[in-house]
Each structure stands twice: as structure tokens, then as C-alpha cells.
Design a protein around this nucleic acid. Structure first.
Length: 388
RNA sequence: GGAGGGGUGCCGGAGUGGUUAAUCGGAACAGACUGUAAAUCUGUCGCCCUGACGGGCUACGCAGGUUCGAAUCCUGCUCCCUCCA
């Protein structure tokens, strides 16, 4: 089973939907469930590829939109492709730029042809089409590439979501038609928070026989229970023998819940972004290293962690680095959070192979304190409003 | 000795009669961040009571005074700064 693009399902939970597998790529085998750190601009912020490899990650996510604008697709191509350019010889998954249709929505116009958007860098206007999105990704040379999709806001009207979902379907067909490399092209299910649209989207895309399926348009401001519900409603209509990728989801509790519902691949900027802002993962929940309580703590932030940061430094030192805004703070925190996630993935894999994932999940969630949902959504709303 | 300027909340610094518990920074304290326009953003920030609305008290160097009302005007005291001798 070594030809690139082949997904090999190794083990499924006897009671539930969690599963373990392997994904073959031209840049090595990827063990699933897998988490991909985000390297939008060809770098996991603050980390060297060696450090990422040492922590144990097998696949990264890079972004076509960002690399297209800077340094430019041709530059990456001339520099020998993305792997060579960024010094990473394991697998790469590139996103099409579809998410930017959503996150930069003030700067874009969507039509059937594609998306006309304004560069957030210099305001210049560009058109990205399903066809060009595939061509760009073929030039970048990632191992898994994504169709161009339209990700509507979580509170968009049903009709608009339906329109975006159907457009995403048409684009998926165009991408499939354009695609000519041996990279794996994954489709993206949309459908917003409508179970009916999710089903329709999953069934339709499944009929096109892609080598993998992503679930997009979630965790963008809707309530957590809705996210999980939509994942369930989508997965149940996806083929069993193809990898399922839950895009943009990566908090520890969400990963556990995603695996529980049959997800194989995750990516998210959350672990690294949150790290740069002082939030560190522990098995008891997130902790803010900037809090005054850490100023004199001799032990590491997470005594159970064996990452470089926790092996080497006290919580007090990390607290100090953050307060002083020293650059090392961001690196040490990123190392910690990524190591935490990697270990979580290993624990999940082990639990699945031992057929004890359900109890692992129950225990993990019982011990992991999460933010009050109201507080979360309110701050999220403020953030989105501010961006509008 | 002479002339002038100034002392505002933890710090810097606005404000020159009422709408001022006092603009704005910073610090401090807490929170958010999920296919990265993010080393970003939000909230609190005199004291006491309240979950909140709200209420009470104390505040602009010190002491008096003018006024219905003063951080803002007047007098004295005190401390600091600049220039001239």
C-alpha cells in the first residue's frame, strides 16, 4: 500500500467511530489520527523544521493564498518547490485559500468563476478560480491539496449557505477536472449548520470519488455542540475507506471529540497562536502563563510534560519572558503546546489500538477544564465585529 | 536675592468654575484566540456594599477662603524646576 494517496484503515473502535490508519504520501507515511501544525507562510511561526520533526509531526499545512501573494507561486517553484524552499522533507498539505474567502471577506467578491479579492498586503486585486487554485497547489508541490471552497459565516442565512455549498460543489468538479498531478486532491464538504445541507454536500462529493474528504466551515463562531453535531451528520455520509479531515479544528478537547466521531486529520493554528499569547495546554486544561500566580513557581508549567521547555525552565522563567515580551517566550510556549498535542495524538492512537478510546475520551474530557461557552462566543463575536 | 514655571489617581500625562471618580498612554489584574491580515484583541483598574442596576465614602501638594457649586478662582504655607544676579 505504498503508493501516494492511499489510505489504509488499520483499526476501528469496536463500539464507536474512532479509527486508526495510515496515509501514504510521497514524503513519508502519516499515522492517523494526525494533527498538522499550521505553516501558512511556509513556516510554523517561531519554529525550525528540525524542531517540528523532533517533536514528531509528520505533516504540516501551508496556505496557497499567503504563498501566492508572497513570495509568489513562481518563486517557490523556482526554488525547487515548497518542501525544498522551507526545508521540510515530510508531508505537506496545502489549503486552497478557500478559508481566506471567509476570513478576509471584506476584501472579496465571489462569483461562479471564482473569488476576486484584494490583497491584505497592498490592496491589489486578484482573481483565484478553482482551476488556478489547483494549478498553484500543483506548482507548490504539497502532498495533499484542497479544492477551492466557499466558507460562509456561521450565522449566514440558509439560502446563502445553500448557494455557497452548491458553488463549492461546482468548484470541486472543476478542480477535479483540472487536476493532473499525482498529489491527492481532497474535496471539502460545506453546508453550514444545516444537517440537511451537510448530508447533501457529503453525499454529492462522495459520488465524485475523491481520495479524501474534508469538513469545512466549522468552528468559526457557532456553539460547540453544533460543531460536533455537524461533524456527526457529515461523517455518517462519507465513505469509510477514505480519510476524513476536519479543517481548522485543533483544541485538545475538539480533537478528542473529533476522533470520537470518526475524524482522521486535523489542522489548526490554535495551539501555536494561543501559545504566542501565553496560553499553555496541560491535562487539566489551559493555563495562562502571564498570570501573577506563576511569578515564583519553580516547577515547570506542566510537570507531566517532557518537552524541551518544561524539562529546562521553571514556570516563573516563562512568566518572566512573557512579561518582558522576550522572543524566546513565543518559541518555548510553541514547543510546549505542539508537544502537548503530539503526545495527545499518541495517546489517542494507543487508546484506539488497545480498543479503549471511549474510556480515554471520558477521562480526558472529565479532567480537561474548558472555557465557559458564553464567554467564548461573546469574545468571538466582538472579534468578528471588530474585523468587519 | 530677583524673575518665571510647576506640584493631578501605581507611573507618565490631559483637564483651568458645574455634564469629573476625573480624557489618553503605560503598568497591574483577568479573559479570548480553532483550514494564522493575530508576539493580537477584549474587559477591569480610588475604597466599601451589590450577581447586576445602583448606592455610600474619600480624592487633584498642605491649610484657609470666594461661590449654590472648585482639580479648576483668591490668600498663606510647603516642595520642585528654569533663567538672571
Amino acid at each position: 500500500m505504498n503508493s501516494p494517496g492511499i489510505f489504509n484503515l488499520i483499526k476501528s473502535s469496536s463500539g464507536g467511530k474512532a479509527r486508526a490508519g495510515e496515509l501514504a504520501t510521497a514524503h513519508g507515511k502519516v499515522t492517523t489520527p494526525v494533527f498538522c501544525p499550521v505553516a501558512s507562510q511556509g513556516t510554523v511561526k517561531t519554529m525550525t523544521p528540525d524542531e517540528i520533526r523532533e517533536i514528531g509531526f509528520e505533516m504540516l499545512l501551508a496556505n496557497t493564498y499567503h504563498l501566492y501573494l508572497r513570495p509568489g507561486i513562481e518563486v517557490v517553484e523556482k526554488m525547487g518547490g515548497l518542501h525544498n524552499f522551507m526545508g521540510w522533507d515530510k508531508a505537506i498539505l496545502t489549503d486552497s485559500g478557500g478559508y481566506q474567502v471567509f476570513s478576509l471577506s471584506r476584501l472579496r467578491r465571489v462569483s461562479d468563476e471564482g473569488v476576486v479579492f484584494r490583497s491584505h498586503l497592498d490592496g491589489s486585486e486578484h482573481l483565484i478560480t478553482p482551476e488556478s487554485a489547483v494549478r498553484y497547489q500543483e506548482s507548490l508541490g504539497g502532498d495533499i491539496i484542497m479544492v477551492l471552497d466557499e466558507c460562509p459565516p456561521h450565522d449566514e442565512s440558509y439560502d446563502k449557505v445553500k448557494e455557497a455549498t452548491h458553488r463549492t460543489h461546482r468548484w470541486a468538479e472543476k478542480c477535479l477536472k483540472t487536476h493532473s498531478s499525482n498529489q491527492s486532491l481532497f474535496a471539502i464538504v460545506q453546508g453550514g449548520v444545516s444537517a440537511e445541507l451537510r448530508r447533501e454536500s457529503a453525499e454529492y462529493l462522495a459520488s465524485l470519488d475523491f481520495p479524501g474528504y474534508a469538513i469545512g466551515g466549522l468552528s468559526i463562531g457557532e456553539a460547540k455542540q453544533v460543531t460536533l453535531d455537524m461533524v456527526e451528520k457529515t461523517v455518517s455520509h462519507l465513505p469509510v475507506n477514505k480519510p476524513r479531515y476536519l479543517m481548522g479544528v485543533g483544541s485538545p478537547e475538539d480533537i478528542v471529540e473529533g476522533v470520537y466521531r470518526g475524524i482522521d486529520i486535523f489542522d489548526s493554528a490554535l495551539p501555536t497562536r494561543v501559545a504566542r499569547n501565553g496560553a499553555l495546554f496541560t491535562r487539566q486544561g489551559r493555563v495562562n502563563i502571564r498570570n501573577a500566580g506563576f511569578s515564583l513557581m519553580e516547577q515547570p508549567v506542566d510537570p507531566d510534560c517532557n518537552c524541551y521547555s518544561c524539562r529546562t525552565f521553571s514556570a516563573a522563567y516563562l512568566h518572566h519572558l512573557f512579561n518582558a515580551r522576550e522572543l524566546l517566550a513565543y518559541r518555548l510556549a510553541t514547543i510546549h503546546n505542539l508537544t502537548f498535542i503530539k503526545r495527545l495524538m499518541e495517546d489517542i492512537s494507543r487508546a484506539i489500538s488497545e480498543d479503549s478510546f471511549d474510556s480515554f475520551r471520558t477521562e480526558f474530557l472529565a479532567g480537561y477544564r474548558t472555557t465557559n461557552e458564553q464567554v467564548r462566543l461573546e469574545q468571538k463575536r466582538k472579534w468578528l465585529k471588530r474585523r468587519a
